[in-house]
Design a protein around this nucleic acid. Structure first.
Length: 295
DNA sequence: AGTCGGGATAGGC
DNA sequence: GCCTATCCCGACT
């Protein structure tokens, strides 16, 4: 319609990608307003940015191998995916098993979209460590650190996750070692898209195509992996939220314990009366309630 | 107002 | 004619 098509220049594309890296997909106006990117994008509207990003999502280097499908033939699994289309191209590589998360440097635990599902990661790690006595927290930590970029507080997070998994009966703790509880079928795998939802598109049988079945299989596999990746992205972001909440609670609880210790010391030093002990316990209780409130 | 998804259209092959 | 990239529109929040 109307206007002549204005091809995207490399500079514009770069500015767009940088803007997305800074603000995230969907924040087109923010990107346009940012003085860092605005000069490169003077000829573009927020709609243009959206369209270009959508375009990048189905082809090209930013696509992360997202399957391109003909118009109106999006796979059901993709349609049902939890991430909005604008966010979809963001980040997950196609092969987003835990291994893929590990392989891709962009999939560090810092990134809420790509963060691992900790439980699954821990169990997978313990499954990999074949020692029948399991592994202690340090071993698990180094194993994960070797393969993943982890956040600064990861050790604490790992500790709390391990304790929780032991409580859930998914792991066994033997002395200081943890190992997978073999009696339990671990249900940490996320619900994966049903295979039946990812049907191969009917292909008109061209007489000359080299391998019809191989193409179908490849399409199925790709579609399945994309759906799986998007599903995992959602689960990962939820896991990170939970992890951050737990971590914050742990911090608060530590601070609380420290406070209580100090109060105890002072009370001991000054031979506290029954009254002051009661007052202290009320103060401590209130403080604990505050620290335990959800974020 | 900002964003999204779908559809139309220009342009290249 | 087909495919891709870009533009445009209406709906939604």
């Amino acid at each position: 319609m109307g206007n002549q098509k204005l091809k995207w220049t490399a500079e514009e594309e770069e500015a767009l990608l940088a803007g997305i890296a800074k603000y995230g997909p969907g924040k087109w106006k923010n990107i346009l307003r940012d003085p860092e990117f605005a000069p490169s994008l003077v000829n573009r509207s927020n709609i243009d940015l959206k369209d270009k990003w959508r375009n990048l999502s189905v082809s090209g280097p930013g696509s992360k191998e997202k399957l391109r499908l003909p118009k109106g033939k999006a796979l059901p699994a993709l349609q049902n995916s939890v991430a909005p289309a604008s966010a979809a191209p963001a980040v997950l590589a196609d092969n987003t098993t835990t291994d893929a998360v590990i392989d891709d440097p962009s999939n560090s635990l810092h990134d809420s979209k790509n963060a691992c599902r900790y439980n699954e990661l821990i169990i997978e790690t313990l499954s990999t460590i074949t020692d029948s006595n399991g592994a202690d927290i340090g071993t698990i930590l180094s194993y994960i650190e070797e393969r993943l970029e982890v956040p600064p507080n990861f050790r604490r997070l790992l500790g709390s996750r391990l304790r929780r998994l032991v409580l859930q009966g998914k792991l066994e703790k033997v002395q200081n070692n943890y190992r997978v509880n073999r009696d339990v079928t671990v249900g940490t795998n996320p619900p994966t898209p049903k295979q039946k939802d990812v049907k191969p598109r009917p292909i008109q049988a061209p007489s000359v195509l080299p391998s019809h079945e191989t193409m179908q299989e490849a399409a199925m596999a790709a579609a399945y992996k994309v759906a799986e990746a998007e599903n995992k992205a959602f689960l990962a972001s939820e896991a990170v939220k939970e992890a951050e909440r737990v971590s914050k609670m742990a911090d608060d609880t530590d601070a609380m314990l420290q406070l209580v210790k100090e109060i105890c010391e002072q009370c001991k030093a000054h031979g506290a009366s029954l009254f002051s002990w009661r007052s202290m316990s009320i103060v401590a209780k209130n403080a604990f309630c505050n620290s335990s409130r959800p974020l």
